[in-house]
Nucleic acid binder design. Structure first.
Lengths: 206, 206
DNA sequence: CGAAAAAGTCAACATGCGTTGACATCCTGA
DNA sequence: TCAGGATGTCAACGCATGTTGACTTTTTCG
């Protein structure tokens, strides 16, 4: 009985933690520290390569705390990786240079300050973790596809969105994960100039 | 002394195995069985996800045999994953449809019978295994880059090759690893029609 | 202050991993 | 036939993993 109540209480505590508070009890501090360390580890090593124990050692904190705060490694991953592509309103994008605008947007997103919590984590993790694959699919359906549909009036907008995504993921894969020399060394402007027309073509060719 | 000799002998045996023989002693049979099982496991789970023990169980054979035949898990991986893109001679490719020809070639390669020993294995493994990343770079430098250079006379052929690779890897990633619905469900012809012009553009635009 | 709750520590569990060396069996060739 | 090498089995090693429950310390608040 008491055990059951304690577990319920603990679970409530975990849930309530997900909202930020004004007075931020001590726990919120370590919670954020855990998330930051987890993001870094997941980014560098993927889901399988990152271990709860090493994340805990980096905080530093006892591994048991991670289980208390996030329930499981999967829970930690879900909490650490939240993707918001911040795609602009399709209406605000000039039609004639939408391709370059999109490529520039993603490069900023991937190489900005908070890049570690972005799609590259998912790329590294998706090969071995079903959750990561699912998240990628969700991002595609809820963020990329609608934006592309808003840009092209075409009825095969989903296919066009998928082709754009395949080019952008290929870019991210070669540049951040494989670090294939020519791709990794190009400047942002070079990439925009080369890939932009491709995206533009996927949007409006045919 | 005797130990040392035995080890040398064993190493010689391992090396000599890498050549195929006409009389194929019993060992060659199991060696091939191990390789086949390893290719399947590496393909489905990547380098880290595949375990020596599970590969052995699939043969079936004792895990110790794998160590005897290939020395280590890394050795098994190197032996199991040999990439030959079988790229045609650049001179034999019609200039005006080189893009579609290349895309069709890769689709055949990836979706043919022996697809499991191909690049998708490396994609799944490269996120966690340095050897896999190195192999991808080697394939790029020795097979893709020269072919592209032979097609375009351009002096930035390396960059063009890298852009083509980023598009093709993105395609493979979305279709075989992430199984992103629109990409995974397109027919080969649709993909050729859509991606072919992109590759063509990377070859000759500007 | 002092009790209750929250935060954090510690040791242990079961499991799977790559790898090793000693041992048993099979097959070949002199 | 039978010795010796090739082939295969077995048990164990040291290690790292995710997770758990009992425990101690710190913080909060009536």
């Amino acid at each position: 009985m008491t055990e059951s109540l304690a577990k319920v209480n603990r679970r409530w505590q975990i849930l309530s933690m997900s909202r930020t508070r004004t007075k931020t009890p001590k726990s919120e501090t370590t919670r954020q520290a855990i998330l930051a360390a987890a993001q870094r580890q997941f980014y560098e090593n993927g889901y399988d390569g990152a271990s709860v124990r090493r994340i805990a050692r980096a905080v530093p904190i006892d591994p048991a705390m991670i289980m208390r705060y996030f329930g499981s490694k999967e829970g930690l991953f879900s909490a650490a990786v939240v993707i918001d592509l911040k795609l602009p309103d399709p209406g605000a994008i000039p039609r004639d240079r939408a391709g370059t605008a999109l490529v520039a947007h993603f490069l900023n997103l991937w190489e900005g300050e908070r890049s570690a919590i972005g799609l590259p984590i998912l790329l590294r993790s998706a090969v071995s973790n079903q959750d990561a694959s699912d998240k990628i699919r969700a991002v595609f359906e809820k963020q990329v596809a609608p934006t592309v549909a808003g840009l092209t009036g075409a009825d095969d907008a989903d296919t066009r969105a998928a082709l754009i995504v395949s080019q952008l993921f290929g870019l991210a894969l070669c540049r951040y994960v494989l670090k294939l020399p020519p791709v990794a060394e190009m400047t942002q402007d070079e990439i925009i100039a080369r890939i932009g027309p491709v995206v533009q073509g996927h949007l409006w060719r045919d």
